[in-house]
Computed example of a mutant assay.
Amino acid sequence: MDYAAVTVSIPQTHVAGEIEWPSNPPGNPRSDFVVHQAAYLEGEKEFVRTLNAQLAKRPRGSRKVFLFIHGFNTMFAEGLYRFAQVVHDSESVAVPVLFTWASRGKIGAYIYDTNSATTARDDLEHTLRLLFASDADQINILAHSMGNWVTVEALRQIKISGQRLPTDKIGSVFLADADIDMDVFRSQMHRFGRPKKPFYVVVSKDDQALRFSSLIAGGRTRLGDDANVEELAALGATVIDLTDVKANDPSNHSKFAQLAEVAPQLTAVLAKGVGANPDSKGKLPQGGTLGGIVELPTTLLNAPIRIISAQ
Rank of each mutant, 00 (worst) to 15 (best):
Y3P: 13
P11I: 01
Q12L: 10
S23T: 09
S23E: 11
G27V: 00
S31K: 04
A39N: 15
T50C: 09
L51S: 01
L55W: 00
V65A: 10
V65S: 11
V65C: 09
F72S: 07
T74F: 01
A84M: 09
A84T: 05
S92I: 07
V95P: 02
V95K: 04
P96E: 06
P96C: 07
F99T: 06
A102W: 07
R104P: 05
T114Y: 09
T127R: 13
L128Y: 04
R129Q: 13
N140G: 08
L142Y: 08
N148Q: 04
V152D: 04
Q157P: 03
G162C: 10
F174S: 00
F174P: 01
L175K: 05
D177Y: 12
S187P: 00
V202G: 03
V203D: 01
D207S: 03
S213T: 12
A217E: 15
G219H: 06
V229H: 05
A233F: 01
A234S: 13
N248C: 10
N252Y: 03
F256E: 06
A257L: 13
P278A: 05
P278E: 04
K281R: 12
K283C: 11
L284M: 14
L284I: 14
V294S: 04
T299R: 08
L301Q: 03
R306F: 00
